[in-house]
C-alpha cells in the first residue's frame, strides 16, 4: 500500500526507470492507468473506431511492457508511448487503405478531397445540439488526410507542443507546422457551416 502511494507520487520517467531497473509491475500499472485514457482519445480521433482504438492501445501497452528497455531517459515518456501508439494507428490505417478498393481519399491531390460535396453535413439550424456538433467535427476530422489529422489531433486535441510533436513523429518542425496548418484549413472548409452558427 505504502509502495503504491510512493510510486503514485513519482513522475512518468521515474516510474519507467523503476520498471526498467527492478521490474516493478506496480510502476507499470500506474503508467497504464495514467496513459490509457489520453492514448485512447488520441487513437480514437486518429482512427475513428472505438473497438479498434481499444485494441491499438492494448497493443501499445503490451509493446511498452515487452520493450521497456528500449526507452531512453533523454526523451519524455509521454512522447515515447505516443510514438508507439501513433505507429500502430498508422499501420491500421494503411491496412484499411489497402482493403478499401473504392477509396477516393487515396489521391495525393489535396484539393480533390475538398471538392467533394459533403452531403452528410446537417444544416446549421439543426446542428445546435452539442452531440451532433461533436459528431460532425469528428466526421470532418476523419475526412482529412491522415498525415494532417495526426498533427492536428496531437496539437489541438491533445495539446502537445511543436517540439514534442517533432519528437513523436520524427519530422522537422517546419513540416509539422505546415501539416498542422493544412489540416486546419481543410477542417475549416469542411466545417464552414458550423462556424456560421
Amino acid at each position: 500500500m505504502t509502495l503504491d502511494k510512493n510510486l503514485s507520487s513519482l513522475t512518468d520517467e521515474d516510474l519507467i526507470k523503476e520498471f526498467q531497473d527492478n521490474n516493478t509491475i506496480e510502476a507499470y500499472e500506474i503508467l497504464v492507468k495514467r496513459f490509457k485514457d489520453p492514448l485512447m482519445n488520441f487513437v480514437y480521433r486518429f482512427v475513428g473506431d472505438k473497438d479498434v482504438s481499444s485494441d491499438i492501445v492494448q497493443d501499445t501497452m503490451i509493446k511498452f511492457y515487452l520493450n521497456k528497455d528500449s526507452y531512453q531517459s533523454i526523451a519524455k515518456f509521454s512522447t515515447w508511448i505516443y510514438t508507439i501508439a501513433g505507429n500502430l494507428a498508422k499501420n491500421e490505417l494503411k491496412r484499411r487503405n489497402r482493403r478499401s478498393m473504392l477509396s477516393i481519399s487515396n489521391s495525393d491531390d489535396d484539393e480533390l478531397t475538398l471538392q467533394i460535396e459533403d452531403k452528410k453535413f446537417v444544416a446549421p439550424d439543426r446542428a445546435a445540439d452539442n452531440q451532433i456538433k461533436n459528431k460532425i467535427v469528428h466526421n470532418a476530422l476523419q475526412r482529412i488526410k491522415p498525415v494532417y489529422r495526426e498533427m492536428v489531433v496531437l496539437r489541438d486535441i491533445e495539446g502537445f507542443s511543436y517540439e514534442e510533436i517533432v519528437e513523436m513523429t520524427g519530422v522537422s518542425i517546419g513540416t509539422v507546422k505546415s501539416r498542422i496548418n493544412r489540416g486546419r484549413a481543410q477542417l475549416q472548409k469542411l466545417l464552414k457551416n458550423i462556424y456560421e452558427v
Partner: peptide
C-alpha cells in the same frame, strides 16, 4: 476551429481495459 476541437469530449478506455491487459 481550435475551440471546436478542444470541446470534443474525451474518449476513455473501456472499464475492463486494465483487467484484459
Amino acid at each position: 476551429l481550435q475551440t471546436l476541437l478542444k470541446e470534443l469530449p474525451k474518449v476513455g478506455a473501456p472499464d475492463n481495459f486494465e483487467y484484459k491487459l
